[in-house]
């Protein structure tokens, strides 16, 4: 219960940070990326503020043997660079510049009910679903995660 409350509050605070920081305004995102035009560096301050806080707290939190309400820290361990990472990031950047939304602000902006957000988020979820389907085609022998030893 505590873990879910923390997840919920974390989501609320994240949304407030996005909205206050200007990330939910696609024109501001485009102005941040428009180095050759009327450049608005504001969103660099969003990134700096977030990293300044998290880089410090991350190091303090990681001294703990485990999180408060969970058994283990679920952290990425990969350190290799591959074409999927770079190709995926490149594709994401094109979509970010084109639509002015990254995933968090897009979901938060659903609350506005504005048509461009609804269209963008529908397509974004479709893109994620498409990825899942292609992954499934690539690895047809992969077991479905839910069917573990419980039924055996």
């Amino acid at each position: 219960m505590n873990s879910l409350l923390a997840a919920f509050l974390s989501g609320v605070i994240f949304a407030c940070g996005l909205a206050i920081g200007g990330m939910t305004q696609p024109a501001k995102v485009a102005a941040f990326l428009d180095l050759a035009g009327n450049w608005d560096p504001s969103l660099a301050f969003v990134m700096m503020g977030a990293i300044a806080v998290h880089a410090v707290s991350y190091r303090v939190i990681r001294r703990r043997p485990s999180p408060l309400f969970a058994a283990v820290f679920a952290l990425p361990t990969r350190a290799d660079l591959d074409a999927r990472l770079i190709g995926g990031a490149a594709l994401f950047g094109v979509g970010w510049g084109l639509g002015g939304f990254c995933p968090g602000p897009a979901i938060t902006s659903l609350a506005s009910g504005h048509a461009p957000v609804l269209i963008f988020v529908s397509a974004m979820l479709a893109g994620m679903y498409l990825y899942k389907m292609i992954e499934r085609l690539r690895m047809p022998q992969a077991p479905v995660p839910q069917k573990a030893s419980a039924s055996a």
Binding site: F14, G21, V46, G49, V53, A74
Partner: peptide, 24 residues
């Protein structure tokens, strides 16, 4: 406002990591 918004995002990510051990 952007710096403050960013700090809230950092706070949110820290809270999710500290409480649930998850990446935001």
């Amino acid at each position: 406002p952007s710096l403050l918004g960013g700090m809230l995002i950092g706070l949110s990510a820290s809270m999710l990591l500290l409480c649930d051990g998850k990446i935001a």
